[in-house]
């Protein structure tokens, strides 16, 4: 009922629909991890330039989200969760979303280069292209492992934040990249377990749809184990101190307990998936906790 205007005459979109196109809620995690990378980096950066760097990371993420919705408008229309987005609901025409996304991409990358350095700008450009081309266009419609590789796009912000300060890429931002990278599968698949029916209707090969729930639960557990190694890597490599070490150990232990519970269960009714929802919610808190601990380590124990 809401897809009729997708290809019809241009509509005058409300400015709030452009804002919605940037997925502001997803942006908070990106801004947070980017800011953590920036604050954990050694050296000084002018507060105005630091603000600009974070703004550019946010705008880049918004641009990628807009281009993602431009490409997926037809798919979004088939899912209850996404059918009310500006494009599938017909509140905006596709050309506007494309122009907005491309314009915002160039603007964020060029501003990043001018305000900080071109390495940070280059990594930002790579992360946008990775999300739009490798994830949205290439992998998402083709393989059930889509979000594993696609998760790399979401793992770039700490590297960008670090590079904005130092002009290089150190071992710690690479470790934070790996942490976010291996965190994405258990985070996302725990969500996919209880919104599975939606993805099935849209024909997207999400793991629970393609390989079944049991395989998904096993993969959640598997990636949690790899994530635990990535979380402890900064401690083992002596890149961080006691605060991060304690937070990572305790936080990851709780993560493992929750993930193990999800792994052991065989519940198929989404209405009774409380542990799965708990793992999904905790995974967000976990990432906030660990990135906060990295910064606390640098600032309090330096």
């Amino acid at each position: 009922m809401t897809t009729a205007t997708l290809t019809s005459a241009p509509v005058t979109a409300h400015w709030r629909d452009f804002l919605a196109l940037t997925k502001p809620r997803v942006m908070t995690l990106v801004v947070y991890t980017g800011l953590a990378g920036l604050l954990a980096a050694p050296g000084r950066i002018h507060p105005v330039l630091a603000f600009t760097a974070i703004l550019c990371i946010a705008l880049g993420a918004g641009a990628a989200a807009a281009l993602n919705q431009w490409y997926e408008a037809d798919v979004d229309a088939k899912m209850k969760r996404t059918a009310s987005r500006p494009l599938p609901a017909g509140r905006m025409d596709r050309q506007s979303a494309l122009h907005f996304g491309v314009g915002l991409s160039f603007f964020s990358v060029i501003l990043m280069g001018m305000a900080t350095n071109w390495l940070a700008a280059a990594v930002l450009a790579v992360s946008i292209l990775f999300y739009v081309i490798v994830y949205t266009i290439w992998l998402k419609p083709r393989t059930a492992q889509n979000i594993v590789i696609g998760g790399a796009a979401g793992a770039f912000p700490p590297v960008i934040g670090w590079a904005a300060v130092t002009g290089d890429i150190g071992a710690l931002p690479v470790a934070l990249f790996m942490l976010t990278f291996f965190w994405t599968p258990p985070h996302f698949w725990s969500l996919a377990l209880f919104v599975r029916t939606d993805y099935a209707a849209a024909g997207i090969p999400m793991l629970p749809v393609v390989s079944g729930e049991v395989a998904t639960r096993r993969q959640i557990w598997l990636y949690t184990a790899i994530m635990a190694i990535a979380a402890m890597a900064p401690v083992l490599l002596r890149l961080t101190g006691l605060i991060y070490g304690t937070a990572a150990f305790v936080g990851t232990a709780i993560f493992a307990v929750l993930a193990f519970e999800v792994y052991r269960r065989r519940e198929t009714d989404p209405a009774r998936m409380t542990p799965e929802r708990r793992l999904f919610k905790y995974s967000i808190l976990y990432l906030f906790l660990l990135f906060g601990a990295v910064v606390a380590d640098r600032w309090l124990l330096a």
């Binding site: 005058t12 409300h14 400015w15 600009t52």
Partner: peptide
């Protein structure tokens, strides 16, 4: 009404960018 609200928001954003570029 939508065009007007878009114009106002665009104007505010441009004003913000002027201040930001000056600060940079």
């Amino acid at each position: 009404a939508r065009q007007k609200s878009r114009a106002v928001v665009t104007g505010l954003l441009l004003g913000f960018l002027v201040i930001l570029f000056f600060a940079i």
